[in-house]
């Protein structure tokens, strides 16, 4: 099992809390050294899945093999081989930077002869050298996240689970953090990361989109954009937006219509024929159209398209 190229194997994983199914028959595999993104809105079941993979929650049914060990039967061996960063910052705010590092080095059974070396490495990686004596609670958000990552990596795990690692962190720190994630992946560490930032999802090697406990798509960002869009994407700039999106819901050829910023994104069967038709359709309804053009879908478009398919009522689009 340990020579397997797969670092995480999830089969038919289910977690129920009473009547509520938080995770509904999820299947996925990650390869060693891969950055695997778990994308979905809040409450979709991302954290629940990660917690099951870390042995913090017991699966209701299904199986999860992490680093070669079954999380339900051998959670201790799993813990020895993984790093975990939870959604909330969860180091000790009242300890110094160095004290947190020493604590986790000890808790993760880092051999005594290696402790100082690993701590030095973590400080270097987190760019916190010289800040060892600072009280953790006084660090800025981005520093805290890097320290938390450093603590989670002290025992050199082969897989690291990051649950929304960059929420509440400024864009520059977020960028720096993703540089670290890429560095880890380059060293062969599997990075399993959840996020609801679409632009972060683009940095992942592969993505699973999760919605209301179910996995709705799986693939590389490029695959997702091509495979899961039911048609081509048009950008429509017009005034006023509200009546436009409402009217377009019943327009011929339009699969899906949604507001994106101050414009509309339309999914249509064929862009060539749809552009003049849509322009005409809107003009007739006294909507002022300034631009209609074909664009490349973003992950957000894919996500909106997929979720409206699963749950039409949630989407802004009104479908015939």
């Amino acid at each position: 099992m340990n020579h397997d190229a797969r670092s995480v194997v999830v089969e038919e994983l289910v977690k129920r809390f009473g009547d509520f199914t938080a995770v509904d028959h999820i299947n996925l595999e990650t390869r060693k050294g891969e950055i695997f993104g778990f994308l979905g809105p809040n409450g979709a079941g991302k954290s629940t899945t990660i917690r099951m993979l870390c042995g913090l929650l017991t699966p209701t049914s299904g199986r999860a093999i992490v680093a070669g060990y079954d999380v339900a039967h051998d959670p201790e061996s799993v813990r020895q081989n993984i790093g975990y960063m939870s959604q909330r910052f969860s180091l000790y705010n009242d300890l110094r930077v160095i004290e947190n590092l020493r604590l986790f080095a000890g808790l993760y059974d880092v051999p005594r002869s290696l402790v100082e070396e690993r701590i030095a490495w973590a400080l270097e990686m987190a760019n916190l050298r010289g800040q060892e004596k600072l009280i953790t609670g006084t660090l800025p958000g981005g520093w805290k996240q890097r320290l938390a990552l450093g603590c989670a990596l002290l025992h050199r795990p082969t897989i690291i689970f990051l649950d929304e690692p960059t929420s509440g962190v400024d864009p520059i720190s977020r960028r720096q953090f993703w540089d670290l994630i890429h560095r880890m992946s380059g060293e062969g560490v599997t990075v399993f990361v959840t996020t609801h930032y679409m632009e972060e999802a683009e940095y992942c090697n592969r993505l699973a989109m999760i919605y209301r406990g179910s996995m709705v798509a799986l693939g590389t960002p490029t695959e997702l954009k091509h495979k899961y869009m039911k048609g081509e994407l048009l950008l429509v700039e017009c005034e006023p937006l509200g009546p436009a999106v409402e009217a377009l819901g019943s327009a011929p050829d339009v699969v899906d219509a949604a507001v994106f910023g101050n414009a509309l994104h339309l999914v249509v069967g064929n862009a060539e024929t749809a552009i003049p038709a849509i322009t005409e359709f809107l003009r007739k309804r006294e909507i002022n159209v300034t631009d209609v053009e074909k664009i490349q879908p973003s992950l957000e478009d894919v996500f909106v398209s997929l979720t409206s398919e699963h749950d039409p009522s949630r989407n802004l689009a009104v479908q015939a």
Binding site: C54, G55, L56, E76, R79, Q80, I82, Y84, S86, R88, F89, S90, L91, Y92, N93, F104, L107, Y108, D109
Partner: peptide, 13 residues
Amino acid sequence: EIGTLEQIMVTPI
């Protein structure tokens, strides 16, 4: 309450 228990629980302690 503050979440540190969760971090402790993923260690082999």
